[in-house]
Simulated assay, not measured.
Amino acid sequence: TPEAVLQLLQQRGVALAGSHALVIGRSRIVGSPLAAALLAADATVSVAHSRTKGLASLCRSADVIVSCAGYPGLVRGAWVKDGAAVVSVG
């Protein structure tokens, strides 16, 4: 799944190097490996989870948001800055 997210971003022309990527969810299956892969792609990575405060603020600052927390509708449109890439890993 993390590789599929990276391929999706690449196919859409999303430049990861130098970007701020936010991964919402820290599971061993998706969130943590995805965060490591984004770091390897030279993105600056933030990881949010169930105890994270200020999720809206983190989302507003991110160039790439990947929600893999398993909650539909967790990220609201008003939280996403113009031009940001958003992936929901449902």
Rank of each mutant, 00 (worst) to 15 (best):
44 T>F: 04
42 D>P: 06
76 R>N: 11
35 A>G: 02
47 V>G: 01
82 D>K: 13
65 I>R: 09
17 A>R: 10
56 A>T: 07
89 V>T: 08
50 S>C: 05
35 A>H: 02
5 V>Y: 08
84 A>D: 07
82 D>Y: 04
87 V>C: 15
26 R>G: 01
53 K>Y: 07
15 A>M: 12
1 T>G: 15
11 Q>H: 15
23 V>A: 05
10 Q>V: 08
5 V>P: 00
75 V>E: 07
16 L>I: 01
48 A>F: 11
60 R>F: 00
84 A>L: 02
60 R>Q: 12
6 L>E: 03
81 K>S: 03
86 V>Y: 15
51 R>E: 15
36 A>K: 13
45 V>M: 04
19 S>P: 06
11 Q>C: 02
18 G>N: 03
30 V>E: 13
25 G>S: 12
39 L>Y: 05
44 T>Q: 09
17 A>C: 06
73 G>P: 08
55 L>N: 08
77 G>V: 04
4 A>C: 05
18 G>P: 04
55 L>G: 05
30 V>M: 11
60 R>T: 01
43 A>I: 02
32 S>N: 10
37 A>H: 08
25 G>E: 12
78 A>R: 07
69 A>P: 06
75 V>A: 08
48 A>C: 10
52 T>Q: 02
9 L>A: 13
87 V>F: 11
89 V>I: 11
48 A>I: 10
81 K>V: 01
19 S>C: 07
63 D>Y: 04
66 V>G: 10
2 P>M: 13
39 L>H: 12
63 D>S: 05
38 L>F: 00
56 A>R: 06
8 L>I: 10
29 I>Y: 06
57 S>I: 05
58 L>I: 00
42 D>H: 15
88 S>D: 15
4 A>K: 13
